[in-house]
């Protein structure tokens, strides 16, 4: 998952202007930290898995727009995104099935703990993390697929105009 340093430099002609690249380099870490904060504290403050996962996907999208898609695919490749997506979907179905052993489907079997702590409320923080990772990888993968396909379609347009 290491990126080559020349992909992120300002002289690389791919991507956008150096002003955008400098600002994105500063802001990227804050966006990811904010996204993880909203996912992890979803049971205490407003937020939750869906909002936090979408914020993380927006962080990857701004990486793709500013530096080109090679850098974003170096950080999370399409195979990695597919594996994370499918594993989280599988876990989201399997964990409530364990609850059947204790009572009924979707029973909250993890002990509750004291309220207003980070580790509390049973498996609600665990579900927030699972949904957050699932939404992030899905939206990032579909954005990369649309961007690649869009560029393919505009090369088709150029070829058609050249033939005419």
């Amino acid at each position: 998952m290491a990126t080559k340093p020349e992909l992120m430099s300002s002289e690389n002609p791919k991507g956008m202007t150096p002003v955008v690249k400098t600002v994105v380099r500063f802001v990227m870490g804050i966006i990811f930290m904010f996204g993880w904060y909203i996912i992890l504290y979803g049971h205490l403050t407003p937020g939750g898995g869906f909002a936090g996962g979408t914020i993380l996907a927006c962080g990857y999208v701004i990486l793709t727009l500013a530096f080109g898609k090679e850098l974003a695919l170096g950080k999370m490749g399409d195979m990695t995104a597919s594996i994370i997506d499918n594993t989280c979907a599988f876990l989201f179905v399997t964990i409530p099935l364990i609850g059947i052993a204790f009572g009924f489907f979707f029973l909250n079997f993890v002990p509750h703990g004291k309220p207003f702590n980070l580790v509390s409320a049973g498996f609600i923080p665990l579900y927030n993390i699972i949904i957050g990772l699932k939404v992030t990888s899905s939206l990032f993968a579909i954005f990369i697929a649309l961007a690649i396909f869009g560029r393919f379609v505009s090369t088709l347009v150029e070829e058609a105009e050249d033939e005419e």
Partner: peptide, 26 residues
């Protein structure tokens, strides 16, 4: 809360169909 994120996923599917239509019918 769930309906908003479903709207986004369905929009991605619709845009994929649009791009395929453009590739075939120009």
């Amino acid at each position: 809360l769930t309906s908003i994120v479903i709207g986004l996923a369905v929009l991605a599917l619709m845009t994929a169909i649009c791009l395929r239509l453009y590739e075939k019918y120009k």
